[in-house]
Simulated scan of single mutants.
Amino acid sequence: MIPGLVSVTFRQLSPAEIVTLVVDAGLEAIEWGGDVHVPPGDLHTAREVRARCADNGIAIEAYGSYYRADGDFGPVLATALALGTPRIRVWAGSNGSAAEPDRGAVVEDLRAAAALAGADGVELAVEYHANTLTDTLGSALALFAEVPALKPYWQPPIGSTVDDALTAVPALEPVAAHVFSWAGDGARLPLAAREDLWRPVLAALPADCHVLLEFVRDDSPEAFAHDAATLRAWLSTPGWGHDS
């Protein structure tokens, strides 16, 4: 597995500062967010970030766009290509599966975006996320059947159980997981506090999955360093994950 960071964990930091944090933490990859660090259409910044990552031996796991299958995908794709990423993360609409008034339109938009990205050798992926068409396992699996080119991410929804995770992860076989520990009310915890969740989840994730830290306590670089050390220790310990 490939450990890394979701850049929007530190919206208050510059790309240069984020690369330094990742290098110092001994991680290997970054998903770059499109809301602050690499805005859609800002090809100059995308190329600068690409070069900085290359100079520091850091892989670009994805372009974390905030595209919601409802507009012009062109600037997102152009920015991803300038960034040199193999994958773009988008959102499966703006409504939960029970509330979406036109699922077909969202599906068609995602299908068209996946085709455009695929023509340039870039994958399209969506999170397992509330208030989108991937808010339940059943709806998510239906979406991946409707858009076979689409790739899944996974993260633990607030209030989900270990059993929920061990049902969803093998069914989805995600290409990436956003890794964090929350209490039942959504309060952020040290990553190590949910070893009961992450031990079985890491064992169930695909061996080539990216595992990307997100949502650290108080948006703190120090908390991130502790969580990164925890993740690296887990991945290097026999019995953790498919590649151990």
Results as ranks from 00 to 15, higher is better:
residue 109 D to W: 01
residue 108 E to L: 04
residue 73 F to D: 15
residue 21 L to D: 10
residue 129 H to S: 02
residue 167 T to I: 13
residue 20 T to S: 13
residue 103 R to H: 05
residue 60 I to P: 07
residue 214 E to D: 01
residue 154 W to E: 12
residue 123 E to V: 00
residue 223 A to N: 00
residue 71 G to R: 12
residue 225 A to T: 02
residue 107 V to I: 09
residue 115 A to T: 06
residue 172 L to W: 09
residue 167 T to R: 14
residue 217 R to P: 01
residue 116 L to I: 07
residue 237 T to S: 06
residue 146 E to T: 01
residue 107 V to E: 03
residue 66 Y to C: 08
residue 233 A to S: 04
residue 56 N to Y: 01
residue 58 I to C: 10
residue 132 T to M: 02
residue 8 V to I: 04
residue 219 D to F: 00
residue 38 V to F: 11
residue 213 L to C: 00
residue 192 A to W: 09
residue 178 H to L: 15
residue 149 A to D: 14
residue 218 D to C: 00
residue 177 A to W: 13
residue 148 P to M: 09
residue 166 L to W: 10
residue 185 D to K: 08
residue 154 W to I: 12
residue 196 D to V: 08
residue 111 R to T: 13
residue 2 I to M: 06
residue 87 R to H: 07
residue 236 S to L: 01
residue 224 F to R: 01
residue 2 I to L: 06
residue 109 D to F: 02
residue 146 E to A: 14
residue 44 H to D: 11
residue 108 E to C: 10
residue 24 D to P: 04
residue 185 D to L: 12
residue 66 Y to F: 15
residue 9 T to M: 07
residue 67 Y to R: 11
residue 35 D to F: 01
residue 237 T to C: 04
residue 202 L to T: 01
residue 122 V to W: 08
residue 41 G to T: 06
residue 144 F to K: 03
residue 77 L to T: 13
residue 236 S to W: 00
residue 95 N to I: 00
residue 187 A to E: 14
residue 44 H to M: 07
residue 172 L to G: 11
residue 119 A to L: 10
residue 104 G to C: 00
residue 52 R to E: 04
residue 119 A to N: 06
residue 15 P to V: 08
residue 48 E to W: 01
residue 217 R to Q: 03
residue 96 G to I: 08
residue 67 Y to V: 04
residue 90 V to W: 07
residue 193 A to G: 08
residue 113 A to N: 08
residue 129 H to G: 02
residue 34 G to I: 07
residue 211 V to P: 01
residue 145 A to Q: 14
residue 30 I to N: 04
residue 235 L to Y: 03
residue 76 V to Q: 13
residue 169 V to M: 10
residue 111 R to F: 06
residue 210 H to G: 05
residue 215 F to G: 02
residue 53 C to H: 15
